[in-house]
Amino acid sequence: MSKINIHVALSVVAVFFLLCGSPLFAAQKNIILATTTSTQDSGLLDVLTPIFEKQTGFFLKTIAVGSGQAMAMGAKGEADVLLVHSPAAEKKFMEEGNGVSRRLVMHNDFVIVGPAADPAGIKGMKSAKEACAKIASTGSLFMSRGDNSGTHAKEQTLWKASGISPEGQKWYQQTGLGMGQTLNVAAEKKGYTLADRGTYLALKKNLGLPILVEGDSRLLNIYHVIEVSPKKFDRINAQGGRAFADFMVSDKVQKIIGTFGVDKFGSPLFFPDAGKDPKDLGL
């Protein structure tokens, strides 16, 4: 009797898993979007993805990585469309013939955040460059993303502008993590860090890291949408990539971007820029 019970129980477990595991195969109509962590961690794509899928019938697979990795995926033909914020690297990407088009979508800005005690005394400084120099000269802990993301690239240009090479310095540490996690690490270790405002606002409540420097034109954070060129790789979903890029710069989506986050944070997380001349933003 007990033996039969064992078999019954085992088959129930097995059938349960089999039933659960059956309808797992679906391809077709997939678009791979490689993007930065900030568009996912801020929640913007959670709002836009269902609208896009409903409107076009495509299935959007969002892979949130750093901008650097997103472009590497594009260059290898592993993504159809990119939403990234690392202008210098994007230009290089386009020059190498990896993209069909690169269009301005939106911007927000970076902020330098740090412990309320502010050991480097940078609070209220107008120049991000000088703030970095002061962090370095006082040897205050700075947490870098260190992951080739757009934020990391921006941070490197700031160090370069201030004539400092922070790599290998004791006060300079690299997390190798996304923006959200790096902010958490900086909060725990009471260090300074550079963050995009969107992710910062989304995480602010638990951090205890006030904004110390903001408003410098060097701190502008600009997002472009890039369609990956199907010329090098025949498996690119060029049609899907174009559909998503068109979607991002459409009036409807630009309006959503402009109001996203207002209800939660009192101010928008991103400012829509489609169709604007990049020069107007100070590029």
Binding site: T37, G43, G180, Q181, L183, N184, A202, N206, L207
Partner: peptide, 8 residues
């Protein structure tokens, strides 16, 4: 993901 979003 929720950890990195700060939704502890």
């Amino acid at each position: 993901m929720e950890t990195s979003r700060g939704n502890f």
